[in-house]
Design a protein around this nucleic acid. Structure first.
Length: 266
DNA sequence: ATGGTCGCCGAGCGA
């Protein structure tokens, strides 16, 4: 069972890349972020033709997330609970009916959070929105852990867990992706008992999942590791592999992110 | 070098 996450940076602009990746890599479940389109404009036919069921939370211009599944699925949530006034499309949760042991998955587009400060030095609303969103994700993770079922919370977390995950830590010290407040909340998720798959399966390995479009960042490997898969204990028990697939980032008209995937034992 | 690049949509914002 292969589950992959990929921030595609516009499903419309990226459709050829996504189609070829789905065809070649053949994930059972693909969790997509930054669709940048409303649900009606999602290229449903083109993806269904490749054998996928689709669940979308869309938004005009910004955000937007989807779950693609070769197995039937039941959508559980199309927004992260905890703030009824939050209109941003950043979360979908579904249960994948993949046989005897179903698995719950969430596609996550965690807020970027920059800029962190206002001119007067106080916290910017974009940063406090990020931290509040992470607090809500902690609440959801706690609820799901009570079920003692296998689940995977995966997506663009917009968090570099440690300085090891940043090509130039000094330059990003005050960035929302690296701020202590952001990292503390990410550690809170792990301290609940969730396993971050890449580090668990590749200890000490330097690998990024995102490279800025500017300044030849890709060619210089000036990257960040901000796309993660977090597994419940019951999912982690089935984890057999995790890797970052750099191939799509090197193609024509790429996303600035590249897919990260896991393999779970049946 | 006070820049650079994308994608949204058709100016400037978000990343």
């Amino acid at each position: 069972m292969k589950i992959a996450t990929w921030n595609v940076n516009s499903i419309k602009a990226r459709l050829p890349r996504v189609q070829e990746w789905l065809g070649e890599f053949q994930p059972d479940v693909a969790l997509l972020q930054e669709l940048k389109c409303v649900e009606e404009n999602f290229p449903r036919m083109e993806i269904e033709d490749l054998g996928y069921n689709i669940a979308v939370s869309g938004q005009k211009t910004y955000n937007g997330v989807a779950i693609l599944s070769k197995f039937p699925m039941e959508v559980e949530l199309t927004a992260l609970p905890g703030d009824d006034g939050d209109e941003q499309a950043r979360y979908v949760e579904a249960v994948i009916d993949c046989g005897e042991r179903p698995i719950r998955v969430s596609t996550i587009y965690l807020p970027n959070g920059n800029p962190t400060r206002n001119d007067d030095g106080s916290d910017h609303e974009k940063f406090t929105y990020k931290l509040g969103w992470m607090d809500r994700l902690v609440v959801r993770a706690k609820e799901l852990l009570k079920t003692e079922e296998a689940f995977v919370l995966a997506g663009d977390y917009n968090i570099c867990p440690t300085d090891f995950d940043v090509y130039d830590p000094g330059r990003f010290a005050d960035d929302a992706l690296c701020r202590p407040e952001s990292r503390a909340r990410f550690r809170t998720l792990l301290n609940l008992g969730l396993t971050e798959a890449f580090t668990a399966m590749n200890p000490g390995v330097h690998q990024y999942s995102y490279w800025d479009y500017t300044g030849g960042a890709w060619q210089k490997d000036n990257g960040l590791r901000i796309d993660h898969l977090l597994l419940s204990p019951q999912a982690a028990d089935r984890l057999t592999a995790c890797d970052i697939d750099k191939t799509p980032r090197g193609k024509e008209k790429p996303s600035d992110h590249t897919p990260v995937w896991i393999e779970l034992a049946a």
